[in-house]
């Protein structure tokens, strides 16, 4: 565990200094700040519109940050040979891929926290009410972004950044079209289709009262399952690779 955390800490130190990450965060936050300038709706509706648009912006920004951090991390470390000095120590390949993902997930958590604070504070300041359920939405977005990062780590363990980027977009698309492809839960394949829809809670957060603790637990289990499977694939792919 110590080695995984050491690698993760180095990834975080490197990632939080990447200007591109904070440019994306800043751009998203500027957009969040201008949401209240949208045309006025009836009372009660405008707050919901704010929450929906704000979470959509946070989602896009988080996914972009995940792709920026994860798609090229392992390929560039191999190409630049920075990985050599790490792997020749008492470090297993799976510890390297897992530590890399943990570092990216922690950086995404930091970015999500910044998103959450600004979105929450802006909502409170402009509309005069603390929108606590926004934090549920931010948590779900972080989980999905971290899963996307795990997918990128898994593919990048054996492929180039271009392939990683394209396949990550395909992954996002395919894991969000279950309802379009299968109709509904009555379809026998519904439960077996790999989907990230569980993390899409923008509607209940924006227009309802959020989700229950049981649902959050379901999200956590789904997150752990996705991350676990993808990290096993990353470890298997990287273990067989000459660097």
């Amino acid at each position: 565990m110590g080695r995984i955390l050491a690698i993760a800490a180095a990834v975080v130190s490197d990632a939080i200094r990447r200007r591109i990450v904070w440019v994306v965060v800043l751009f998203a936050l500027i957009l969040v700040a201008v949401i209240p300038m949208l045309p006025s709706y009836g009372q009660g509706v405008i707050e919901a519109v704010y929450r929906e648009v704000a979470l959509a912006l946070v989602y896009v920004a988080a996914i972009v940050v995940a792709l920026v951090l994860a798609a090229n991390r392992i390929p560039s470390e191999v190409e630049r040979r920075t990985v050599y000095t790490v792997l020749v120590r008492d470090v297993r390949r799976w510890e390297y891929t897992t530590g890399t993902w943990v570092g990216i997930a922690l950086t995404l958590a930091a970015a999500s926290l910044v998103f959450g604070v600004i979105v929450f504070a802006t909502g409170w300041l402009v509309y005069g009410e603390p929108m606590w359920t926004l934090w549920q939405g931010v948590l779900a977005i972080w989980m999905e972004a971290a899963v996307v990062a795990a997918f990128c780590v898994a593919v990048s363990a054996v492929a180039s950044p271009v392939i990683v980027g394209v396949s990550a977009l395909a992954f996002l698309f395919l894991t969000h079209v279950r309802a379009d492809l299968l109709g509904g839960p009555s379809n026998p394949l519904w439960s077996f289709y790999p989907s990230l829809d569980v993390f899409n809670i923008i509607a209940p957060v924006a227009h309802g009262t959020g989700v229950s603790l049981a649902y959050i637990a379901t999200m956590a289990v789904t997150f752990a399952g996705w991350a676990g499977v993808l990290l096993v694939l990353a470890a298997l792919g990287f273990a067989r690779r000459d660097v």
Partner: peptide, 18 residues
């Protein structure tokens, strides 16, 4: 070659921890 955004102390810290 090492991650360019790290410094020498951080590199030694990483390898020391490993």
């Amino acid at each position: 070659y090492f991650p360019p955004l790290l410094n020498a102390e951080e590199v030694l810290k990483l390898h020391g921890r490993l």
